[in-house]
Design a protein around this nucleic acid. Structure first.
Lengths: 234, 234
DNA sequence: GGACAACAGTGTCCTACCGATACTGTTTCC
DNA sequence: GGAAACAGTATCGGTAGGACACTGTTGTCC
């Protein structure tokens, strides 16, 4: 019951169902300004820097004034997500003669958006209620995959999977030699070469992709889809 | 520099490099007991319930006593991870005549471990230093993929990708009708059927997999690998 | 064997955080 | 024009993580 009412509040906030009062002083702040300030802060100093106090200070207001627009930090984060994710593209933004280049473009656009707000992968995990923008991204992916011939659950599993793949290939931005292991980890591997012979032998190999294997993994997944589609057609 | 020394401390902790003193009273607590209490707490009440105070209380000790074994909460979480992930399997635990059933078994075992500790997906994101157990899991995946003929970066990208796939297919444990959308989200979609026609049309479809599409996605990925291997061989 | 140094666990304090509540001043409707 | 409704403020409480000084215990060295 507690979570339910909290989720209801978030839904009302994100989907514009909050009843706007008529009497009383005019609001000086707005949800958009607050969310924008929070997004800017998270972009600049990371999600850990986002506190009610700090967001309010950046707006030259008191911390408690934010609670007139947001019932708590969870709602603020939800508003941040839907603002940062932005207006979703449309099918016209996904060129190509078939579903494959279209969904590739979708992944590319999603990755661009997430890279602009590196805190998004952390906040978009778990069971949530998506806002209108985020739902629009999902709608677009569903539309792009419609002509694959996959079943509906398969299509949605695939869409979710692709989003997860973007997350996986973004969360590690190591500046080490190998993208799959950072500097300290490599040193530890060399110290314990007996326990980890396979990994240790891999340390000095070449040809690491600059994108954390995003294109490589995307190719694998979509090749798998093509095979599945072909198998069913034939 | 600050992060560096903190990471060094975590490395020393996880890899048993902490200098054990000889003089003074004998320690009553131990890192293992502390980490185990924290893991039990996280399993029972979620990661949010894990605080220094609470872990210490569960052990009938003072909060500050934990700091004799752990420099801070980050180190505690790192110790929790390597304890919860447990002793990794060996190649003997991955049956099969080829790499494919072996890596499938690896994914299955990893998923089992993570499902037993549902907080693991959240704390194993981002750039970290893995402990010995976690490194063992990675070593095993690298060994299982050795015979694919993929390049080293490709193999490690694939291994990371599979771990991410387990994360993606676990983080949503919705009890709704469709696994890709929860109850509230479905209601919102129906209310805004004009904005999200594709998703809305999907709401009443059948055949949702009970595993959040984990097997489906795994099949896609490994089919893609097989095609890549075949293409290069031919 | 006794003094001292090293150490384990405690008690106290500080800062940062989220959030509740009572308040002040402003706007609009009756 | 008065009263209700509302925006923003000021203050308070509870819970985090963590620094620091302290008490008591243990081993080592003379």
């Amino acid at each position: 019951m507690d979570e339910d009412t909290a989720a209801d509040g978030t839904i009302q906030l994100l989907w514009g169902l909050r009843e706007g009062p008529t009497r009383g002083p005019k609001p000086v702040l707005s949800l958009e300004r607050i969310a924008q300030a929070a997004v800017d802060l998270a972009d600049a100093e990371g999600l850990g820097a986002v506190s009610m106090q700090r967001v309010a200070a950046d707006l030259d207001f008191t911390k408690m004034s934010l609670y007139r627009y947001v019932t708590g930090k969870d709602e603020l984060v939800a508003a941040m997500i839907d603002l940062a994710v932005g207006t979703p593209p449309t099918l016209a933004d996904l060129p190509g003669p078939s579903w494959r280049p279209r969904i590739e473009a979708w992944v590319r656009l999603l990755a661009q958006t997430w890279e602009a707000h590196p805190w998004l992968p952390w906040v978009t995990m778990g069971d949530r209620v998506m806002g209108p923008h985020e739902t629009g991204w999902t709608e677009l992916s569903a539309a792009a995959l419609a002509e694959t011939g996959l079943t509906v659950p398969e299509r949605m599993s695939l869409a979710r999977m692709l989003g997860g793949h973007v997350r996986t290939t973004m969360s590690v931005l190591t500046a080490g030699t190998q993208p799959w292991v950072n500097r300290r980890q490599a040193a530890l591997l060399r110290e314990h070469a007996d326990r980890y012979p396979t990994l240790c032998a891999m340390l000095d190999s070449e040809g690491a992709p600059p994108d954390n294997g995003r294109d490589f993994g995307l190719r694998l997944i979509l090749d798998g889809v093509e095979r599945l589609v072909a198998d069913r057609a034939g």
